[in-house]
Every structure is written in C-alpha cells, then in structure tokens.
Simulated scan of single mutants.
Amino acid sequence: MRALLVVNPNATSTTGAARDVIAAALGNQLDLRVVHTDHRGHAAELARSAAGDGVALVVVHGGDGTVNEVVNGLLGEAAPGTVPAEDTPAIAVVPGGSANVFARSLGLSPDPLEATQQLLEAIAAHSVRKVGLGGADERWFLFNAGLGWDADVVHAVEQRRSKGKEATPGRYFRAAVRHFLRSARHPARLTVEVPGHAPVTGVHMAFLSGSDPWTYFGDREVHTNPTTTPDAGLGLFGVTSLGPLTIGRVVPQMLGRDSPPRARRLLRMDDVAEVRVHCAEPTGLQLDGEYLGLRSEVHFYRVPLALGVLVPPALNRR
C-alpha cells in the first residue's frame, strides 16, 4: 500500500527518536514516503498532492491542527451533502500534540509508540472506520468548533506558541480564565438557529462538537454533549448567561460524566444536522483548536461517513 507519513516536527509531544521508530515500523508494512512540514498549511498541501497522486493512506504524526489540515487538503472545500470521492485516501493518526482529541475520541492511545502498534494492527487487518465530519462554511472540522470564548483562548495560546512557548494545560487554563473574565464584561451576542426550533437570541458562546469528549485539560476530559459520536450528528452547546450561578453549575458538570450538563440558561441539543449562528458583531471562530479569525455568521453542518480512518479491529464500531 502506498502511503504518505506527514510529520509535524514542531508538535508538542514529538521527538526525533520516536519519529524515527515510527517511520521505521510503518515502513516495514507500507510503501512509505515521509515528509516533515515546515510551514502553516504545508500538511494540507501535502495531502492534496497525495490525493492526486494515487496514495491510498495518509498517516499524520502531529497534533489535532495537523490532522485538520490533512483532512481539508484531502477533501477540499466542505459543503452540505458532500459525498467524498471513492478513491479519497484514508487517514491514520499517530498522536503528537498536546491534546490529541480526535485520536483519543477514536480510542487510540495518546502515546505515539502505542498508537503506532495499534495502527500496525489496523493495517494488517485492513480495518477502516468511516466517520462523519463537521463543516463550518467551506472548512471541515473533526471534533469541535466554537464561536466566542474558546476561540479567544485558542488565539491567545497560538500567539504564545508563535513566540516559542509550549501549549501546556496550565497556559490554556490561564488563558481560559483571563478571557472568560473579559467575556463576562463584554459578552458576545449570538443568535443560534436550528431547523425545527425557534431561534435562540442572547447566546454568549456557542460550541459544536463532533465527538465526546469535546476537549481535554491535560488528562481531564471536558464534556459538553456526552452522547455525541463521530457517527452521529453534531452536539450544540451554548449559554445565555455568564453569571456565577450558571457557570458555577455548568462547569463542574462539564468536567464530570454522570449526566449531560443541565442549567436554566443553557442551550444544549444532541444529534443536530445543521446550525446557523449570527453574530451581532464579528466574533472569533476556532475549528479543532485552530483560530480562523472573526466571523459575522457561520453555517455549521454534519456530513456522515465522510472520511475513512484506520483503527484496530477492536475499535472499529460499525
């Protein structure tokens, strides 16, 4: 099988020694070409070229942002009802980032060498799982998207990383607290529209998830819509109050998993096919932990069975 291994050498948890071991192990099973990314958007360029060159599998060793780039490069622009071409390469993920939300949502080990062993099992068994993807206007996302507070947090951490700082859980936590306090003083004003439901106005932040957990703080899972899976519709989560009673009730529920978060000023829906969000003023958007800038309106939607992902047979729930 012809395969491309896309490596982000700047990802948080990659090392040169581990990358060599991973490449050697995969090279024993695949006709493998290895390329290291060297600029933003490079992974998408490599994936786009691989799709046109008849490569059957693209393996990604990096963080969630690198995986997102590869998927957007393979599939091109997103649109509701998109049906990917039959010959679109499958992907596989060897985690190398700080959170690795997509890989972990599939049940893959966060340890790169253990995940490589899982991938070798998948290759031997030809075990491919078809998963759904989210769309946000013309861009694909794998596991989460957000307008407002979380996008501001992602942007702040990205700025720190551009100055050589690591994306640690502590840095995310400090940015989250700082931007929450800022949001409480100057909340975003969003209108959320879901077909079949009355529009909800006065929403201060909106999250869309394509899997559960929505994200992680270190090893601590964060749940907004616990029943969401890569095989179902999107989970929608938002709040219409940033007051201490609402946030004090919702945050502990998000960090637990006994039941879905519930509160009077909480907007939460499961298995949603599409959502439109209108912003009273331009608001930050993030997809899979990548900040995309300010938007005044975003159309979110789900495309089922959009992507083939190699997973070991034990994790291939069909």
Rank of each mutant, 00 (worst) to 15 (best):
L5H: 03
N10W: 07
A11M: 10
T14S: 14
T14Y: 09
T14I: 14
G16S: 07
A17I: 10
A24M: 04
L26N: 03
N28E: 15
N28C: 14
N28D: 15
L30W: 02
D31A: 07
D38N: 13
R40M: 14
H42Q: 06
H42E: 01
A43N: 11
E45T: 11
S49T: 14
D53L: 05
G54K: 10
V58K: 09
V59F: 09
H61S: 13
D64Y: 05
V67G: 11
N72S: 12
L74A: 09
L75W: 00
G81Q: 03
G81V: 06
V83S: 02
E86G: 13
V94M: 07
P95R: 13
G96H: 02
F102S: 02
P112V: 13
I123Y: 02
L133V: 04
A136D: 04
R139M: 13
V154L: 03
E158Q: 12
Q159F: 02
R161C: 11
S162W: 08
E166Y: 13
F173K: 13
R174N: 05
A175M: 08
V177F: 11
L181D: 11
S183F: 00
A184N: 06
R185I: 13
A188E: 12
R189P: 01
L190V: 05
H197W: 15
H197A: 15
P199N: 01
V200K: 00
T201F: 01
V203L: 00
M205W: 08
M205S: 14
F207C: 08
L208V: 13
S209N: 14
Y216P: 09
D219L: 12
E221C: 15
E221T: 15
E221I: 14
P226G: 04
T227Q: 15
T228Q: 00
T229L: 05
T229V: 11
D231A: 04
D231Q: 08
A232T: 15
G238E: 03
S241M: 05
G243I: 00
P244C: 03
L245K: 10
R249E: 07
P252I: 03
D258S: 13
S259E: 14
A263S: 08
R268H: 04
M269F: 15
R276V: 11
C279W: 04
C279N: 04
P282F: 05
L285F: 01
G289P: 04
G289F: 09
S296A: 10
V303H: 01
A306V: 02
L307H: 05
V309Q: 01
R317W: 11
